[in-house]
């Protein structure tokens, strides 16, 4: 299969590869996919006191399109509020990378990863609030 130039660019020079401390209350971690399916994405976001995503990192096991989708997703969430990041859809990723129909599931996984990271962050925040209320 021929890859789009956008996919090749992100695959060869992926942005925001790495990991953040998943115990940090400011960090949300999303882990989606399954090794048996050939795709696993870990996407992490770090949210500042103003509720803005100030940093994002990813690691992905998957095809070139999956790696490119997660690279683009981390780049897009940076600088956005949580609600803005929640609004990112897989179709935008499909368009951004010119993904063929057979690779749409990669973009779906990237959207899921963003949402999972935000959910994880929110859960951490509510637990912290519960803790402070209890104290």
């Amino acid at each position: 299969m021929a890859y789009s130039k956008e996919v090749i660019q992100h695959y060869e020079n992926p942005l925001n590869v790495g990991s953040m401390n998943k115990e940090d209350p400011k960090v949300g971690t999303g882990l989606v996919g399954a090794p048996q399916c050939g795709d696993v994405m870990k996407l992490q976001i770090k949210i500042n006191d103003d509720g803005i995503i100030e940093d994002a990192k990813f690691k992905t096991f998957g095809c070139g399109s999956a790696i490119a989708s997660s690279s683009l997703a981390t780049e897009w969430v940076k600088g956005r509020s949580i609600d803005e990041a929640m609004a990112i859809t897989n179709t935008e990723i499909v368009e951004g990378l010119s993904l063929p129909p057979v690779k749409i599931h990669c973009s779906v996984l990237a959207e899921d990863a963003i949402k999972a990271a935000i959910t994880d962050y929110k859960e951490k925040q509510s637990k912290q609030q519960d803790n402070s209320v209890a104290q």
């Binding site: 992926p14 590869v17 990991s19 882990l31 090794p35 696993v40 994405m41 870990k42 690691k59 992905t60 096991f61 790696i67």
Partner: peptide, 8 residues
């Protein structure tokens, strides 16, 4: 593998 969450 540096890119792989599974390897990590």
């Amino acid at each position: 593998r540096e890119l792989s969450p599974l390897w990590e």
